[in-house]
Simulated scan of single mutants.
Amino acid sequence: MTTRISHQPEIQQFFRQAAGLDNAGGNPRNKEIVLRILKETARIIEDLQITDDEFWAGVSYLNRLGGSNEAGLLVAGLGVEHFIDLLADARDEASGVSGGTPRTIEGPLYVAGAPLSEGEARMDDGSEDGVATVMFLEGRVLDLQGNPIAGATVDLWQADTKGNYSYFDKSQSDFNLRRRILTDAEGRYRARSIVPSGYGCDPAGPTQACLDQLGRHGQRPAHVHFFISAPGFEHLTTQINLSNDDHLWDDFAYATRDGLIGEIRFTEDPAQSAKRNVEGRFAEMSFDFQLRPARSEQATQRSQRPRALQA
């Protein structure tokens, strides 16, 4: 017979004490959250009959996860970050808000402070010339009526041909493949970059270790991340997944959504390459973004989640 005690009044009071609810100090909101975590943890231990070995293996895993700085990766891989987007979508629908480019996950690899330019930018530092395929990316930032938004900030970042990101990959130069572009009078942005590679979790890392236990892979399709912002409009966090990737609809982080597929076109015509001032094969991709009007000043700002800061 399974012993269940978590519902008993004295145990419930014990959890309230542990969460600090019997004293005036601390943060009331955080107390409420910790109390819920304690109660749900107790229920899991009881309902699933968690053994001591399983419990302490879980504690050890959390230590490993934090030591590897992969918590942000794991919440994406387990679909929690996608759920937060779905919840925001549901709240919008309940409030009668619709339209605009869909949101999707940010992921853990943004770095603040990328170089800012007007209208257009080259994103890569040239270190993969002759290896990478040059990609020309352009589009417009529009309002819901299709009018251009001049001066919008298009903050974009992507991986290199090995699936690595600058700052986290110390072999890359600072802000390689990271730029901020202000749209021109027509709401247009242009970027010369390279075709990014998809990538997978570190096979020796704790995120992949968890996925292995679930019988899942840790692969992501090639993609480009975006923050789009402009005064008076809702901040948009999204990413464009490249149409030619085998993992397009099999993204371990669940970031692929209808309306967020970038149709990439490859050209091998020497005359076209000459016009673009490149050698050999190159790629083109166009993507327009539509922003919704902001209902509050807070809606114009991105979330305050902790992010990497360039030293």
Rank of each mutant, 00 (worst) to 15 (best):
F136G: 07
Q172S: 05
N277C: 08
F266R: 04
H217A: 02
L236W: 04
V278D: 00
G205M: 03
A204W: 03
T300N: 12
A271E: 15
Y110P: 06
L87C: 06
R140L: 13
I44Q: 09
E186H: 12
R29L: 13
L109F: 15
A222D: 02
I264G: 05
R192M: 02
L182C: 03
E70L: 04
L309V: 13
H223G: 05
P148K: 05
G126Y: 02
D124L: 07
A76I: 00
V34W: 07
S303K: 07
G200A: 14
R276W: 05
R91F: 13
D246V: 15
R307N: 12
Q298M: 15
A121W: 03
A204R: 13
N23R: 09
E284C: 01
L62E: 12
L48T: 12
R307G: 02
D184A: 14
T153R: 09
P293T: 08
I240H: 10
G151R: 10
R302S: 10
E279N: 11
K39S: 08
K162G: 06
G67T: 04
D47H: 02
V97L: 11
R302Q: 12
G215L: 03
E118G: 00
W157D: 03
R140H: 14
M285H: 05
I105Q: 08
V278H: 00
Q272L: 10
I44T: 14
S303I: 06
A191N: 04
T238P: 04
R295S: 14
T267G: 08
D174Q: 09
G215N: 10
F175T: 06
R276D: 03
R192E: 00
E40V: 13
S273W: 02
M135H: 03
R91H: 12
D155A: 04
G139Y: 09
L248S: 03
R179I: 09
E128A: 15
E118Y: 13
Q158A: 08
E284Q: 06
Q304M: 08
G280H: 00
S303E: 15
M1S: 15
I228T: 00
E279I: 10
A114H: 07
G130V: 10
R281A: 09
G67F: 07
G113P: 00
E297L: 10
I228Q: 10
Q12P: 05
I11E: 06
R43W: 04
E120S: 02
S171I: 02
